[in-house]
Design a protein around this nucleic acid. Structure first.
Length: 259
DNA sequence: AACACAGCCAACCGCAAAGTG
DNA sequence: TCACTTTGCGGTTGGCTGTGT
């Protein structure tokens, strides 16, 4: 039994992509657009599985990708987003125009982790390293590590959050928050219940790319809420921020409520 | 020059979510 | 509702490159 492979592995190329393969993929997508990754390789004349094609396109060939080193602002933005979202690389990438989740993930693991450690901050929980781990019997009151007050781009500041009471009774699965929404540290629970905007939209045949484009741009939604993207709100706006060029952006991440 | 090691990053893998009939 | 397919995400791996010995 077991899961059937995503593609017939025999006769499939693996490993690094050649220039010829890149060109075939780019040409095909230029002509037909993204989507239907499963059938794309055959149609494009590639001996690759759809997943591989998608990854290559998303992480390397997309024309809108930003090349080059991360800026200091991007560093800080990633750190702040990670403190809120954890390893949700795709969500973080959605807030960094031109950057991919894979790129950010790699950058986190190779640079930022070290950077935080050198600052005496645990990259996993964004707390000072020497801060003792709370005992399991201690009442579940923790301080949310980072919270921002978005008064405006020039007024970025970190605010000290109210202590958050996070009691979780054993076996109590009531409420709307799923287990996935909860970061657990044994009995310690930080329930961010993030409402991340733009919400991951559902895919449909009519618009097969909607989820991905949403992930990428974080702004291609209709909505009536905020009109300023995250980077602006926390003061990291730059000219390349594509989100800001779209006037009707739904940005609900900051409506997160801490229970 | 040769080797060992570390850092980096593209790509792979497995799983879960979402879509479809 | 269910089974199956497709897509997307996050963790991990492997190979290339640079640096030190």
């Amino acid at each position: 039994m077991g899961r059937s492979p995503c593609c017939e592995k025999a006769h499939m190329n693996k490993g690094a992509w050649t220039k010829e393969e890149d060109q075939l993929l780019v040409d095909y997508i230029r002509k037909h657009g993204e989507g239907c990754w499963r059938s794309l390789p055959r149609a494009a004349g590639l001996q690759r599985c759809g997943k591989s094609c998608r990854l290559r396109w998303m992480n390397y060939l997309r024309p809108d990708l930003k090349r080059g080193n991360f800026t200091e602002d991007e560093d800080e933005l990633i750190i702040k987003l990670h403190s809120l979202l954890g390893n949700k690389w795709s969500l973080i990438a959605g807030r960094l125009p031109g950057r991919t989740d894979n790129e950010i993930k790699n950058y986190w693991n190779t640079h930022i982790k070290r950077k935080l450690l050198s600052r005496g901050i645990d990259p996993n929980n964004h707390r000072p390293i020497n801060e003792s781990t709370p005992s399991k019997t201690t009442p579940s009151v923790v301080e949310e590590p980072v919270q921002f007050d978005f008064a405006g781009p020039d007024q970025l500041r970190t605010i000290k959050p109210e202590p958050v009471l996070l009691n979780r009774e054993e076996g109590d699965n009531s409420g709307t928050t799923s287990e996935k929404d909860i970061q657990t540290d044994d009995d310690w629970v930080l329930n961010l219940e993030l409402s991340v905007g733009p919400a991951r939209t559902t895919r449909s045949k009519a618009n097969p790319n909607s989820a991905e484009s949403t992930r990428r741009w974080g702004s291609e939604l209709s909505g009536t809420q905020a009109v300023v993207c995250l980077c602006c709100r926390i003061g990291f706006h730059n000219e390349s921020c594509r989100n800001c060029r779209i006037s009707d952006v739904r940005t609900t991440i900051w409506e997160s409520k801490i229970l």
